[in-house]
């Protein structure tokens, strides 16, 4: 089961990275990594990068101007991050964060956060 799940994650993460490249008009060719390495690296890397989000985004409380990200799906995260990458307004902080992530890193992070959100919704 784990291998199946991991393969599914690889597929989704790679698909998302590809989508980001498409959105940016960048070539798709650069992201063909081996499935096994990609699964291990991307899942773990997503978790490590997501840890940095927690410096500003409260895990549960969204009432104080900085929105919660714990319930967002991956498309919403990617779209928001691409918008933040493109413009310094409305947030210096998110502009800096978005610029620091490669497409693959952003895909891995969005996937990781979305998986956490899904796990949280299960009874």
């Amino acid at each position: 089961m784990k291998r199946v799940r991991r393969a599914a994650i690889v597929s989704r993460v790679k698909g998302l990275a590809a989508e980001i490249r498409w959105l940016l008009g960048v070539s798709l060719c650069a992201i063909l990594l081996s499935a096994a390495n990609s699964a291990a690296a991307d899942v773990s890397q997503g978790a490590q990068i997501a840890a940095t989000c927690a410096s500003c985004h409260h895990p549960t409380d969204g009432g104080q101007a900085i929105p919660p990200i714990a319930t967002l799906d991956e498309q919403a995260i990617v779209k928001a991050m691409l918008a933040f990458r493109a413009s310094e307004s409305p947030s210096h902080v998110m502009h800096a964060v978005a610029l620091s992530l490669s497409d693959d890193e952003l895909a891995a992070t969005a996937r990781y956060l979305a998986d956490r959100a899904n796990a949280g919704r299960q009874p």
Binding site: V43, A54, P59, P68, A70, T71
Partner: peptide
């Protein structure tokens, strides 16, 4: 409200690394 806590983030991070890293 959500169950997504940082404890889970850390737990998964550790678990993911351990699962692949001998």
């Amino acid at each position: 409200m959500t169950d997504w806590t940082r404890r889970q983030i850390g737990g998964l991070a550790g678990g993911a690394m351990l699962a692949v890293a001998a």
